[in-house]
Design a protein around this nucleic acid. Sequence first.
DNA 1: CCACTATATTACAATATAGTATTGCACAGT
DNA 2: ACTGTGCAATACTATATTGTAATATAGTGG
Lengths: 110, 110
Amino acid sequence: MGYLKLTPELMDIIAERFKALGEPARLQILDALRGGEVTVSELVDATGLGQANASKHLGLLHQLGFVTRRKEGLFVYYSLADRDVFRLCDIMCGRLEAETSARRKVLARR
Amino acid sequence: MGYLKLTPELMDIIAERFKALGEPARLQILDALRGGEVTVSELVDATGLGQANASKHLGLLHQLGFVTRRKEGLFVYYSLADRDVFRLCDIMCGRLEAETSARRKVLARR
DNA sequence: CCACTATATTACAATATAGTATTGCACAGT
DNA sequence: ACTGTGCAATACTATATTGTAATATAGTGG
């Protein structure tokens, strides 16, 4: 089946998104948002990140459309824009498994 | 449907993979490998990257299991380990489209 | 208006990464 | 063996990114 053609500009944009996911702290944040809306403070507690740091990561994730914000009084509630992130992670995990089992086979064949 | 649970170590590993894709030069390389096996020189020509640079990126992609190598005489032929990369890119593109059309709607509603 | 809280922003130090120039190495042809 | 070629490895510079400390902003309650 035909995958999309990747123009240079599109590749830049896509790379930018992948790079955003290429950081454990941000994956942690996204994972913490699994259950639904969470405030920044809750996120800080859940992830162990510093407040400023978490805020910065959240800013990036928001800018790239991975999360949505909703301000209510003093609090800002973040939530996942969609579940794509987890689909992406699952594909990566599938790769890992394939990789690992292939390696196991090589080792077993001695 | 249940997505995989992400342990901290798994997140590190996944982040490492995403980070590898988070670089236009590497996406370019992977894209150039779409058609099948390609030598490093051909890749250098196709992408415009310097030889050393391309080689370094290829080394990383190989280490992370995105590409396979095959040496034949003087040449090293690289090829895609699988088509997952393009599935991942397609999901990202889907996100972009959704994002863009949402933005268009916001603009149209003035 | 003042104190307090939640979040964002800025400035900065430490680290990581990309690109490049150079060198090393393996192989092929002569 | 000698030479040239294709690729990898190393060393280095320039730039980007992370995390954090300090400060700013915005809202809330007294």
